[in-house]
């Protein structure tokens, strides 16, 4: 069994992860101001997950060669939540930082939903595809004897898609232990609270019933997220793994946090400026 307890980040790393998370929030808000069509609330709930993966030293990656054979594959299945990954990938050198300022403009590589962008493994945006595709990649990597892991990020609203559960069954049965699913459980989809649409509880028990190793924890505490993910990557140990991150949709923007319909809400430029100040 894996059940690796995970590592506690030392003080320096913890401080860095917290600073990075603040910076990613500021950048995500800034990108939203530049391109108001971006789904900002969805991109604010997954910040700490991306930060732990990309700045916690948990991922094998090669910005100079985004398709490096040895890389861990990251699939952002909740495509609209990928805006917060743009500044991280630019910072790490997957593409030029100047691209960030061009978001949504004619000829830019960056749109409201990530498509053919260095560092993004697949094109998502339509929900419910990432886990099945991730299963195919994980299976191919296992057959090839690769040490790489496949990480898939989904929202909890996305779990309503039936294709997700075809893939959950498949991964459990085939013991795809090189697969790690991150559920950004922000508890809201487009029209409100997921518990009022179809209650997903008990969520981690559902995954366990399908043969997965499941953990649930706070998805915004940098130390907790790092601790959990460091125990799950590199993914091995006989079972696919899921980390259910308890998050808040629109985290860091109080007006969004309080709004059940925040998925489709935009912030005004003035609101963005105020929030950026607050997150410094």
């Amino acid at each position: 069994m894996c059940n690796n307890a995970g590592k506690t980040p030392d003080a320096a790393l913890l401080a860095e992860l917290r600073e990075r998370a603040k910076w990613v929030r500021r950048e995500t808000l800034r990108l939203h101001k530049l391109a108001p069509e971006t789904r900002v609330a969805s991109s604010l709930s997954d910040v700490e997950l991306f930060v732990a993966l990309y700045y916690g030293g948990l991922l094998k990656m090669n910005p100079a060669n985004p398709r490096d054979e040895a890389r861990d594959r990251v699939i952002v299945s909740k495509g609209h939540g990928g805006i917060s990954l743009y500044p991280i990938l630019a910072d790490l050198g997957f593409f030029g930082k100047e691209q960030l300022d061009s978001i949504g403009t004619s000829g830019s590589i960056l749109g409201g939903i990530p498509d053919e962008i260095p560092g993004f493994e697949t094109i998502n945006g339509s929900l419910g595809h990432g886990l099945g595709v991730g299963c195919g990649m994980a299976l191919a990597l296992k057959r090839r004897g690769s040490a790489a892991s496949v990480v898939v990020l989904m929202g909890d609203g996305e779990l309503f898609e039936g294709s997700v559960w075809e893939a959950v069954m498949f991964a459990g049965f085939h013991r795809l232990d090189n697969l790690l699913l991150l559920v950004d459980r922000n508890k809201k989809s487009m029209l409100g609270h997921t518990r009022e649409i179809i209650d997903l509880d008990p969520l981690d028990a559902k995954f366990r019933a399908f043969g997965w190793e499941a953990r649930a924890a706070d998805g915004h505490d940098a130390g907790t997220v790092y601790g959990a993910l460091s125990g799950l990557l590199p993914a091995r140990g006989g079972k696919p793994k899921v980390f259910v991150a308890d998050t808040v949709k629109g985290k860091g923007a109080p007006s969004l946090e309080a709004d059940p319909l925040c998925h489709i809400r935009n912030l005004t430029p003035e609101q963005v400026d105020g929030l950026i100040e607050e997150h410094k």
Binding site: E121, T122, H129, L131, G132, V133, G134, C135, G136, M137, A138, L139, A140, L141, R143, R144, G162, S163, E166, A167, M169, F170, H174
Partner: peptide, 26 residues
């Protein structure tokens, strides 16, 4: 047996799993 898989009566997953494998060059 290592290169044959019955995904079950699950055509959506059939295509998605195949796509993931094809992205890996298979």
């Amino acid at each position: 047996p290592a290169r044959f898989l019955n995904v079950g009566i699950a055509e959506q997953n059939l295509i998605n799993v195949a796509a993931g494998m094809a992205f890996e060059g298979l």
